[in-house]
Amino acid sequence: MAKSRQNLQTRHEELIVEHSPKSPVSEAYRNLRTNLSFLRPDEPLSKIAVTSSTPKEGKSLTVANLAISMAHNEEDILIIDADLRKPMQHKFYDLPNYEGLSNILTGELKFEEAVQETGIDRLSVISTGFIPPNPAELLSSHRMEEVIEQAEEEFDFVMIDTPPVIAVTDAAILGKKLDGILLVVASHETERGMLEKSTDKLKKANVDLIGTVLNKHPVKDGAGYDTYYYYYGE
């Protein structure tokens, strides 16, 4: 998919694991990667969603950096951006978003035509494509199940970026098609009530909440600068 990248909004500099692999944040992502790999030793995870309670908690950035960490571990990784309301993944990787998941789900594009290389070895992305008027219906379709199945066949690990839990049902819909969901929580930002509502909503939808990621927690690095650290736990 050779598309012009002129005037694309980019957030490529936020890919800390790629640009600062020795930083505390990168190490935290590697720890998260390791914890996921040991979570179910008898039935290893191969497809998960990442979400948050509300917007701007960092779930899309968590997807991007965790995926890079996995790719660095010699795994073939696919990110599917299923946030059909506010797509972000194409911005992190400086990719066009003319065609993607929504085009696959409406029959306009084949799976293999939507997969884009990121420029990072062993890491690929399917962006959202056009913003549809009916995201929930598309994501709950049988065709979405086929997309997930094909992705699982062709890649070692599939990570799906979904909208926040509180606002819409998309995360719960997709979670039931996957091995589980990671919930990103912004330190000192996420309200306890919203977090409780999110976990309750996922539980009622019979979605396996495999862990939480504490994001935006200020710590001091060796140089005395504020940075962030990510934590995984059941």
Rank of each mutant, 00 (worst) to 15 (best):
M1Q: 10
A2G: 12
S4L: 12
R5Y: 03
Q6S: 14
R11W: 14
E13D: 14
V17T: 09
P21L: 07
P24G: 06
S26Y: 06
R30D: 11
T34A: 10
N35D: 03
N35Q: 09
R40S: 15
P41V: 08
E43F: 06
L45K: 01
K47V: 13
K47Q: 11
I48L: 08
A49M: 07
V50L: 13
T51W: 02
T51E: 03
S53E: 05
P55E: 03
G58F: 03
K59E: 11
T62K: 08
T62F: 13
A71H: 02
N73H: 13
D76G: 00
I77C: 06
K86P: 05
M88T: 13
Q89K: 00
H90Q: 05
K91M: 14
Y93Q: 03
Y98H: 09
G100E: 04
S102A: 10
I104H: 05
I104K: 08
L105A: 09
T106I: 05
T106Q: 12
E108I: 01
L109M: 14
F111S: 07
E112K: 13
A114K: 06
V115W: 11
E117A: 15
E117C: 04
T118R: 07
I120R: 02
D121F: 06
T128H: 09
T128I: 07
P132F: 13
P135W: 07
A136G: 06
A136F: 04
E137I: 00
L139S: 11
L139A: 03
S140F: 08
R143C: 00
R143M: 11
A151Q: 06
A151Y: 07
E152S: 14
E153H: 10
E154V: 04
F155M: 03
M159E: 08
T162L: 01
A167E: 13
A167G: 04
V168L: 11
A172T: 11
L174E: 02
G175H: 10
L178Y: 07
D179P: 09
I181Y: 01
L182H: 04
L183E: 02
V185P: 00
E189A: 13
R192Y: 05
M194I: 14
K201R: 13
L202M: 11
K203G: 14
N206R: 12
V207I: 06
V207E: 02
L209G: 02
L209I: 15
I210N: 05
G211C: 04
N215D: 05
V219A: 02
V219H: 09
K220T: 09
K220Y: 12
D221R: 03
D226C: 03
Y228A: 10
